[in-house]
């Protein structure tokens, strides 16, 4: 593979896709910029969280609220979904057919939804233990950071459903391909943000 065939971050379609590969360059670059901007957004809520660690105002702290088992399951779910999305990208690139592509995307969606299920269950448990965001500055900061990631995952799931709808409607045309490739970046990016969340919020909080 020579240097100039890699035009953008993420899995490149390659020359076999002709014009779609060229069209990807600028669109993927623009989306990459958006992700960088989003990274700063997350950076800001992380700094809020870290600066508010001691602001529990007598309310429950990390040790009272976090559940390492459920976070571990969430981490595995998200990691697995990153892998299945990778398989979907391969199915797209090497033209394994729409059925296999939709199959991998559906598995990814299921994993994403399962992640969201576990996460909301976590939040409900926290509320039950008196860990509502209105309780303290610390909890406000927590509920800024982790649900923001959850909101992104929700957005990713909706986007995924829309893309499957577009495949059904138009087949694998240029815009669908570019959509899947951008969602792939988004999905892997969210997994990276989750690494920071489970490390900084949960593991460091329970350490």
């Amino acid at each position: 593979m020579s240097q100039d065939t890699i035009k953008h971050p993420g899995l490149n379609l390659g020359c076999a896709h002709g014009g779609d590969h060229d069209a990807a360059e600028r669109v993927m670059f623009g989306f990459w910029l958006f992700l960088m901007s989003d990274a700063v957004l997350f950076g800001m809520v992380f700094s809020t969280y870290v600066a508010s660690l001691s602001a529990t105002a007598g309310g429950p702290g990390p040790r009272d609220l976090y559940n390492i088992r459920s976070v571990f399951i969430e981490t595995l779910l998200l990691l697995a979904s990153s892998f299945t999305f990778g398989m979907a990208s391969l199915a797209l690139k090497y033209k394994h057919g729409e059925t296999r592509l939709i199959g991998w995307l559906t598995v990814t969606l299921a994993l994403g939804v399962a992640f969201l299920g576990f996460e909301s269950h976590d939040f409900v448990t926290m509320f039950a233990k008196g860990g509502a965001p209105t309780r303290s500055g610390f909890l406000s900061a927590f509920f800024d950071l982790v649900p923001l990631h959850g909101l992104h995952v929700t957005g990713g799931c909706i986007w995924l459903v829309c893309l499957v709808g577009q495949i059904a409607r138009y087949g694998l045309d240029t815009r669908v391909k570019l959509g899947i490739m951008r969602l792939a970046l988004f999905w892997h990016f969210l997994d990276i943000v989750w690494i920071a969340i489970f490390s900084v919020v949960y593991l460091a909080g329970l350490a």
């Binding site: 890699i6 899995l11 997994d191």
Partner: peptide, 17 residues
């Protein structure tokens, strides 16, 4: 690791990413 293996960021491609 995620950047390298999932997002395929490396030294061989255009450096801008």
């Amino acid at each position: 690791v995620h950047f390298r293996f999932f997002l395929h960021i490396g030294f061989r491609q255009k450096r801008e990413d």
